[in-house]
Amino acid sequence: MIVTDKPSSPSFEESLAELESIVNDMENGDLPLNEALEKFERGISLSRLSQQSLERAQQKVQILLKENGEESLADFSEPDAPDAP
């Protein structure tokens, strides 16, 4: 059995779920200052990890597009939504 000292990073989805939980806890305003600071620090760390995951995914997409003869990513635009009543 191989044991590593480095814990694995959470997946993008796990990071987002934990960030959402942290935001909910902090919005309640019932946390002691030290715990609020710890959660804030964890939130910053998760935010950075998530940003890095998104950047890696974008790089992969750009590589795949280049392999298929596309030059760059195009801006995504939502189709016009029908007017709500």
Rank of each mutant, 00 (worst) to 15 (best):
S21E: 05
E18T: 07
F76G: 04
P79T: 12
I22A: 00
E55W: 10
N28D: 05
L49K: 12
K66A: 10
E13N: 08
Q59G: 09
L64F: 11
A17D: 02
Q58V: 13
D25W: 00
D25L: 14
L46W: 01
S9F: 07
N68L: 15
E41Q: 11
P85H: 11
G43P: 14
V23A: 10
E13A: 14
I2M: 06
I63A: 03
Q62N: 03
I2T: 07
L37V: 15
P10W: 05
E41W: 02
D83P: 07
A17R: 06
E71S: 14
S47D: 09
Q62W: 00
V61C: 04
N34R: 06
M26H: 11
L54T: 02
S11P: 05
A74F: 03
F76R: 11
S9Y: 04
A74V: 10
E55V: 14
L46Q: 04
E41F: 11
P85F: 08
S50F: 01
N24M: 09
V23W: 00
S50Y: 02
A17G: 00
D5A: 10
G69Q: 00
L37Y: 15
S21G: 03
M1D: 10
E20K: 08
E14Q: 15
K66N: 10
P32R: 08
L65K: 01
A84P: 07
F40Q: 15
D83V: 14
G29E: 02
K6H: 12
E13F: 03
L46K: 01
S8Y: 01
S15P: 01
E67W: 00
E18M: 04
E18F: 00
F12A: 07
E38C: 06
S50K: 07
L31T: 02
Q52G: 13
I2K: 04
P7K: 01
L54I: 15
E18A: 04
Q52V: 14
L19S: 05
L64Q: 14
F76L: 15
V23C: 06
A81F: 09
S8T: 05
G29P: 09
L49S: 13
P10K: 01
Q52Y: 13
S45N: 14
S72T: 13
V61W: 03
E13W: 01
I2D: 11
S45E: 15
I22Q: 00
P85T: 07
A57F: 11
D25K: 09
R42H: 12
Q59F: 06
E14G: 07
P85Y: 05
L73S: 05
I22K: 00
D75W: 02
S77A: 12
Q52F: 09
V3P: 03
E55R: 12
E35H: 06
E38P: 00
I63N: 06
S11K: 04
E55D: 15
E20A: 10
R48N: 14
R42I: 09
S53T: 13
A36L: 10
P32W: 06
E55S: 12
D75I: 09
R56V: 08
N34A: 14
V61E: 07
F40M: 13
S50M: 06
E71H: 05
L33D: 09
Q59T: 15
E13V: 08
L33A: 11
N28H: 12
D5I: 07
D5L: 06
